[in-house]
Amino acid sequence: MIQRFIELGEGYGDIYELRELITSNQQRFMHGFVFVSTNSQGQDVLSIAAAFKPASEGNFMPIYLCREGIPLDSKRLDIFEQTVSELGHTPIKMEVKHSSVYADRKFYHSHLISVLRLNHYIPPMQ
C-alpha cells in the first residue's frame, strides 16, 4: 500500500478544503491528526492532517496535510476539531519535530508516516 502525504498548504484558507474533503468522504475518513512542533523562533505551531482509507480500486492511502501554519489557540484548529468530532472521532494530538529539522520535506513525511504506523494509526507497509 502506498501511503503519502498530500500538502494542501499551511492551514490558512486550505483548512476549509480539508474540512470539505473530510465531510464529502466520510465513509473513507480514518483519523484526524494534530501535530504540534516548535519552529526555529521557539513558537509552537500546529499541522493538521486527515488520513483516508484507500479508494475501492488502487492501493493508495492519502493523508492530507496543512503544514505548520496554525498557531496553538486558533479558530482554524476549532474548525478542524469540530469537523472530526461530528464524525464521531477525536483528533489525535502528537508532538513531532518541525519540518525545518529535515534536509528535505520527503524525509519529514517519511518520519511522520513511520510514527503513524508504529502507533497503529495507519496500516503497516505491505
Score class of each variant (00 low, 15 high):
98 H>V: 06
86 E>Q: 15
110 S>T: 08
100 S>K: 14
63 I>V: 12
84 V>F: 05
116 L>M: 05
95 E>A: 08
123 P>L: 08
105 R>L: 07
74 S>K: 03
70 I>H: 08
72 L>T: 14
90 T>K: 09
19 R>M: 10
34 V>I: 15
47 S>K: 01
108 Y>H: 15
90 T>W: 05
103 A>R: 10
8 L>K: 05
14 D>P: 05
11 G>M: 02
52 F>E: 06
95 E>I: 05
116 L>W: 04
26 Q>Y: 06
37 S>F: 02
65 L>H: 10
14 D>I: 02
65 L>W: 09
20 E>R: 08
63 I>G: 01
86 E>K: 10
73 D>C: 02
79 I>D: 06
107 F>N: 12
8 L>A: 04
53 K>P: 00
55 A>D: 15
110 S>C: 03
19 R>S: 07
27 Q>M: 14
85 S>R: 14
35 F>M: 05
116 L>Y: 00
99 S>L: 05
42 G>S: 09
43 Q>K: 02
122 I>C: 07
55 A>H: 12
100 S>Y: 14
74 S>C: 03
6 I>C: 08
45 V>T: 11
49 A>W: 06
73 D>M: 14
113 I>V: 13
15 I>Y: 01
21 L>W: 07
122 I>A: 05
118 L>V: 07
84 V>S: 00
91 P>L: 00
25 N>Y: 02
29 F>Y: 10
125 M>S: 12
93 K>D: 03
59 N>T: 09
39 N>D: 15
126 Q>I: 12
32 G>A: 06
109 H>M: 07
1 M>E: 10
109 H>I: 02
114 S>T: 14
54 P>L: 04
22 I>H: 00
12 Y>V: 12
114 S>N: 15
94 M>T: 02
